[in-house]
Amino acid sequence: MAETARTETEAAEVMAELAALEDPRARVVNEKHGDDHGVNLNKLRALAKRLKTQQELAHQLWETEDTAARLLAILICRPKAFARDELDVMLREARTPKVHDWLVNYVVKKNPHSEELRQAWSADPDPVVASAGWALTTERVARRPEGLDLAGLLNVIEAEMKDAPDRLQWAMNHCLAQIGIEHAGHRARAISIGERLGVLKDYPTPPNCTSPFAPTWITEMVRRQHDQ
């Protein structure tokens, strides 16, 4: 009980510190990307570095439902300590893009249940949840493709990506590009699918950045690999 009370006190202190870091200009920028908080991410990371890993505090911060607090919770938690069902609930609660992305990339990918969750989420009727499954699939395409049906993934992308909701479409497009970049035997088909569907073809891309349009993305990354 004493430990819990101490953690609750520390959580309240951290919430006050996050409130003091609130910057209206940062909030304007973040809200353009769908994230409802005004804390500069560099300052958030500095706070996490000072707090170090604290799993119980991370739980307390997550339960506040505050976006900045949840981002901080992700940075100070122990990724391998979460149960499968716990991560499933957390992902469904993570409705802002940054919390969703950090949870998948910083926690789920490092958790022993990641493969089980990848399979479950990829088939989920909620497109935001499904996008997390596709993000985990993209990670496997790049790092551990053994056992994946790459041709089957391309079949699904070809049939479903064009009409998928934005977050899911973006995740499927990333997977398409990764298959084309990493697997020469599937490259021509990946490029062909991208060209035919035209997803993100007109996406505004800043100078010196690679377009997310899969055929352009694949071609550029393969060129860089050959130049190395």
Rank of each mutant, 00 (worst) to 15 (best):
A46P: 01
E116K: 13
G34A: 07
P112M: 05
P97K: 07
K49M: 05
D23V: 09
Q54A: 06
A120Y: 07
H37G: 03
M90Q: 08
D124L: 11
M15H: 00
N111E: 05
H113G: 13
A132K: 12
G34E: 02
A130M: 08
R95M: 06
G133S: 14
E17P: 00
H113C: 14
A81D: 09
D101T: 15
T67P: 00
S114M: 13
K110G: 08
H59D: 13
Q60H: 08
D23Y: 01
L72I: 09
R84Y: 02
F82H: 13
R45S: 14
L75P: 00
V14N: 01
H33Y: 10
R70M: 10
D85L: 08
V39T: 13
P127Q: 11
A20V: 02
I76H: 06
V104S: 09
H59N: 11
K49S: 10
E63K: 15
D35W: 00
T96M: 10
Q54T: 07
L91A: 09
E17L: 04
A20S: 13
K32D: 02
A20C: 01
L41M: 07
I76L: 09
K98V: 12
N111D: 06
K109W: 02
A68L: 08
T53I: 07
A19S: 08
V108Q: 05
T96E: 11
C77D: 13
E56V: 13
A19F: 00
V129E: 03
H59A: 05
D101V: 14
D88G: 15
L72Q: 05
A26R: 05
H113T: 14
E93I: 03
G133A: 15
A46H: 06
V14K: 00
V99F: 01
T64N: 00
E93F: 00
A48F: 03
H33N: 12
L47N: 00
A58T: 02
S122D: 10
V108K: 07
D88P: 03
P24L: 02
A19L: 04
W102D: 15
L61G: 03
A83T: 11
A69W: 00
L41I: 15
L51K: 04
P125F: 11
